[in-house]
Simulated assay, not measured.
Amino acid sequence: MDTGTGPRTGGVAPTAAPGGTERGRGVLEGAFALLEALRRSGDEAGVTELALACGVPKGSVHRLLDQLVGVGAVERRGNRYRVGPQLYRLGQAWEPHPGLRSAARLPLQHLRAVTGASVVLAVLREDMALTVSSVPGDLEPLLPVRDGIAFRLDTAAGKALKGPLRGGAVLDREDVMDGVCCAALPVRAPDGRTVAALAGMVPAGRGLDALARAVAGAGAAVTRALARGGQRRPVPPSALVVL
Rank of each mutant, 00 (worst) to 15 (best):
M1R: 07
T3Y: 08
P7N: 05
V12G: 14
V12F: 15
A13N: 09
P14R: 07
A17H: 15
T21G: 02
E29N: 13
A33Q: 10
L34P: 04
L35Y: 01
E36V: 02
E36H: 11
G42Y: 02
A45L: 14
E49F: 09
G55E: 04
V56R: 10
P57E: 09
V61Q: 00
H62T: 10
R63F: 06
L64P: 01
L65T: 11
D66K: 13
Q67E: 15
V69G: 00
V74R: 08
Y81G: 03
Q86D: 07
L87W: 06
R89D: 07
R89P: 02
L90T: 04
G91C: 11
E95P: 05
L106M: 12
P107S: 03
H110G: 04
V114D: 02
V120I: 15
A122R: 05
L124W: 07
M128R: 12
L130H: 05
D138R: 14
V145M: 11
A150I: 08
F151M: 10
L161R: 03
K162S: 14
R166G: 11
G167K: 15
G167E: 06
V176N: 13
M177N: 03
G179W: 12
C181L: 02
V187L: 10
A189Q: 08
D191P: 03
V195P: 04
V195N: 03
A197M: 04
A197D: 03
G207N: 07
D209K: 15
A212F: 03
R213Y: 14
A214M: 08
A221Q: 13
V222Y: 11
R224F: 08
R224N: 04
R224S: 11
A225C: 03
R228P: 01
P234G: 03
V235L: 15
S238W: 15
L243I: 12
L243T: 13
